[in-house]
């Protein structure tokens, strides 16, 4: 079983559209993992049935039991996150600002602060209409542990793939270069970089590839909207050549991407012509490069 992770650095380059297309093309041979848990959208294209769901607890949140509080204020002084405020005669902890370090509870002289497990979201296993399975999640607002939920989704997807003897786990990654991305890259066998020929796209591709290099991972690149700016597309191709990254495909600037999303379907189902051909060729290349 091999793990293929699709990322982009910049948001909105077409990661989810491309990943959902691969999921459709691969059908039963992949388990899909939507690791963009902050803003998970894959379920809008693959008709999941939310067959199994479980709450996800991660880290802690501190709470003051008012009955024993003597208003000494030691907790508020200890807190580095300005999460404890004093108003109308009582100290309160704002659960959004609380990082769950538990320092306040340790210094409270009356032991009236308790740490509770923090509910940070929910995760699901679904049957999807490609005939396979998808692991996905919803992070609660302002939750701090998206990296851990990403790891949870990925690990569950891996276990399922092993149990069901699937050839691949296909991961839709989050944008950026921080903790959720690092978490989605760990253990990857191949990274698909989806970029666009804009100055921002190129800038972000270079940053995220630095991270891929740090992990010594194999990668390939798809240039989406390639005809939007030929000069920037050339700049990307030059970068790919210098870094020895296989160039998997150029996809055209095509509003069929948005139309497919609006219909709740994948591009390869919406446009059975050139877009399907290009994506099918890319998927075959990715499989070859992964194995």
């Amino acid at each position: 079983m091999k793990e293929i992770v699709v990322i982009s650095g910049k948001g909105g380059t077409g990661k989810t559209s491309v990943t959902a297309s691969f999921a459709r093309l691969a059908g039963e041979e992949v388990v899909v993992a939507d690791c963009d848990v902050d803003a998970a959208d894959m379920h809008l294209l693959l008709s999941p049935d939310f067959d199994f769901s479980e709450e996800f607890y991660s880290g802690e949140v501190s709470v003051i039991d008012q009955s024993n509080c003597i208003q000494c204020g030691i907790c508020a002084n200890a807190c580095q996150f300005a999460a404890i405020s004093f108003a109308r005669g009582i100290y309160r902890i704002d659960p959004i600002s609380c990082e769950g370090c538990g320092y306040c509870a340790r210094v409270c002289p009356t032991g009236t602060i308790i740490n509770k497990p923090r509910l940070s979201g929910k995760w699901y296993i679904s049957n999807i209409r490609t005939g396979s399975l998808m692991v996905h999640a919803k992070l609660d607002i302002g939750a701090d542990n998206s990296g851990k939920l990403v790891a949870k989704v990925k690990n569950e997807a891996k276990e399922l793939a092993l149990e069901e003897r699937k050839a691949y786990v296909l991961v839709d990654g989050p944008p950026g270069v921080g903790c959720p991305v690092v978490s989605s890259l760990s253990g990857a066998n191949f990274v698909v970089l989806v970029t666009e020929p804009t100055l921002s796209g190129v800038h972000d591709l270079k940053r995220v590839y630095e991270l891929v290099k740090k992990f010594r991972l194999k990668a390939g690149c798809i240039i989406n909207k390639a005809d939007l700016n030929p000069e920037q597309s050339d700049a990307i191709r030059k970068f790919l050549e210098e870094e020895n990254i296989p160039h998997l495909a150029d996809l055209p600037y095509d509003e069929d991407f948005s139309r497919a999303i609006t219909q709740g379907t994948t591009i390869v189902e919406y446009n059975e012509g050139h877009l399907k051909r290009l994506l099918a060729e890319s998927w075959e290349k990715i499989k070859k490069l992964t194995n």
């Binding site: 902050d38 803003a39 939750a143 701090d144 989050p174 944008p175 950026g176 921080g178």
Partner: peptide, 10 residues
């Protein structure tokens, strides 16, 4: 601001 809904956005 950054995208998403988790701690960096807040």
């Amino acid at each position: 601001s950054p995208p998403g809904t988790s701690c960096p956005v807040i």
